[in-house]
Write a protein that binds this DNA or RNA. Structure first.
Length: 185
DNA sequence: CCTACGATCCCCT
DNA sequence: GGGGATCGTAGGC
């Protein structure tokens, strides 16, 4: 299980460290294979303009969840790091509760179950109800990778500002990421 | 394979 | 009143 103090650090340092970690919600989930970092100096970050009701969790304790709604439809799940920063969990390799996730996602395609921030929240049943909750307690279970995987990086997905900051990280060669990484990543 | 676009909510200006 | 840290489907090649 995690030590919350470990998350009181730069999101850009924590994001690659989370690759290979196991994330379960209510016993359902798998291995993190794709992350992105956001911090307060970053114009792409929800925290860029300071605290607001939506991003309050980003200014709360490290090691807690920040969950927001994207495009009016999807939930997206972050792990809060040092004040005003967080790591967006973008993809998971499903390992626990495949049948439950397939039912929630209404698909039999394991490869797409958790490939993308909205999809993984649907598969793990993460909603606004989890916003601000500590990751060291139920329903969450988070354990660091036993061995560091080979890591790819590149520009973040779906943003219009801060596009040159290469704060997207992935397990090199994983077929469960939301989009391939360039061979130079 | 690829690109285009609509859905739908809450926050923020 | 504008605009997303997205996804699924439709259509073309």
């Amino acid at each position: 299980m995690i030590d919350a103090e470990a998350f009181d650090a730069e999101a850009a340092d924590i994001a690659p460290l989370l690759l290979g970690a196991e994330l379960l919600v209510g016993g359902v989930g798998g291995r993190i294979v794709e992350t992105e970092a956001y911090d307060q100096e970053d114009p792409a970050s929800h925290s860029f303009a300071g605290p607001t009701p939506r991003n309050a969790a980003m200014f709360g304790p490290p090691g807690h969840a920040y969950v927001y709604r994207a495009y009016g439809i999807h939930w997206c799940f972050n792990i809060v790091c040092k004040r005003g920063s967080a790591v967006l969990i973008r993809a998971i390799e499903p390992t626990h509760g495949l049948d439950i996730m397939m039912r929630r996602r209404r698909t039999g395609h394991v490869r797409d179950l958790c490939a993308g921030p909205g999809r993984l929240c649907q598969a793990l049943a993460i909603t606004k109800a989890h916003d601000g909750l500590p990751l060291g307690h139920a329903p969450f279970a988070l354990s660091w990778a036993e061995a560091a995987p080979d890591i790819a990086s590149g520009p973040r997905i779906g943003i219009t500002r801060g596009v040159d900051t290469r704060w997207r990280f992935g397990v090199r060669g994983s077929r469960f990421v939301s989009k391939p990484f360039g061979s130079r990543g």
